[in-house]
Nucleic acid binder design. Structure first.
Lengths: 205, 205
DNA sequence: TTTTATTTTGAACGATGTTCATTATGTTTG
DNA sequence: CAAACATAATGAACATCGTTCAAAATAAAA
């Protein structure tokens, strides 16, 4: 079955080619501006071909969003060896925020856009594995912090969500262009100092 | 000049009619699904007429977004008489969150969508008056809290932004459908308990 | 009544996501 | 090698979107 094998490989290659073109384009021009036609033009195939390999645009966005989680997850895993739990929490937050600021379009897709969630619902995939996994990492670290005397009187689940929300909120406001307009401060500076203020709040015993 | 007067009034009325139709439709069906054609159909005028009164869709969205700020601002003003600053901060946060949960589409427009910000940029309105005003109310309250011994060691500006971010983050994740998927908890319950956890964190002297 | 000004209209344009009969290419078989 | 079959690629066509603008309808003025 050498031929069937090669064919299958070629199909996979073209699928990956489409995906990488989409990734490139939407990091460059943004998600909204990345059309199926522009992807087809980029890889020098016709529009129709894109639809042979992906059933619609949300499927492409969903796969990209998974790639994003793979990257973020990888960066997070490299922090698991930080033994002090509060230090680890801070490191996770920083990594998360840096990821958002350096990959604004991808972050937007992962945590703001509706397309990936719609794909999940439409395909009866009950759970959002990627997001779930990332949140687990945070919750475990928060648990460690509580066990080490931080966050007295707090409940694990709501607290973990609140912590995630606070960093996500900063990133989201930044990406959606509300920071400068509301505060009058320089966004990039404010993000750094606000993050430190947040961590100061979290790390009080 | 009775006629010119009446004409001007009629123009204003039609403008308002378009806006209210848009508001109704997008609270019902969502912003993305509210098209210029559907607005025209709702008020029983042609598409072209809409463009006589609004230069494009972002202008409509911008006006709606201003209405949203007027409403939120009004609800906030009624809390200015709460004398204890930490109580006021908590009340502001609750009001803000309730507004978001009860007017998801409007909140989305005000703090997530790009259209209103693009309109502001395109029209050389240097500042985002509405957002700026709302943030000022928060900052003043945070200032009062600091003066009363809360948030020791924190800086006003970054701290205020961090507080805003944390509540906005929760609302944003809720509206963009990430809460259940990531945490596994029931969103509506979690929002409440997470808010309390957040306030517990803020109110520690 | 005729002329002028204003308001409303909807066909038309370009761009989007998507579909599918047709064409082109590659593989197998007689 | 040629004919039959299978697979892959194509791009015109469709519906919908925001938007434009010459033409028609209506109102005001002369």
């Amino acid at each position: 079955m050498g031929i069937a094998e090669r064919k299958a490989k070629e199909k996979e290659e073209l699928k990956a080619l489409i995906l990488s073109a989409a990734k490139k384009l939407f990091a460059e021009k943004g998600i909204e501006e990345t059309t199926i036609r522009s992807i087809a033009r980029e890889i020098e195939y016709s529009v129709g071909t894109v639809y042979v390999y992906y059933k619609d645009k949300t499927e492409i966005l969903h796969e990209l969003h998974q790639q994003g989680f793979a990257q973020l997850g990888g960066e997070m895993r490299s922090l698991f060896n930080v033994s002090d739990p509060m230090e680890r929490l801070k490191a996770i937050g920083r990594t998360y925020m840096n990821f958002a600021l350096e990959n604004t379009q991808m972050y937007d897709l992962m945590f703001n856009m509706k397309a990936p969630m719609e794909f999940i619902k439409a395909n009866e995939e009950k759970t959002w594995k990627e997001g779930h996994g990332t949140f687990d990492a945070l919750r475990n670290t928060v648990k460690d912090c509580i066990d080490h005397g931080y966050f007295k009187g707090h409940q694990l689940e709501p607290l973990s969500f609140a912590i995630w929300s606070s960093v996500h909120g900063m990133c989201s406001l930044y990406i959606r262009d509300r920071v400068k307009a509301a505060t009058g401060q320089e966004p990039d500076e404010l993000m750094g100092s606000a993050y430190e203020d947040l961590m100061l709040l979290f790390s009080r015993k």
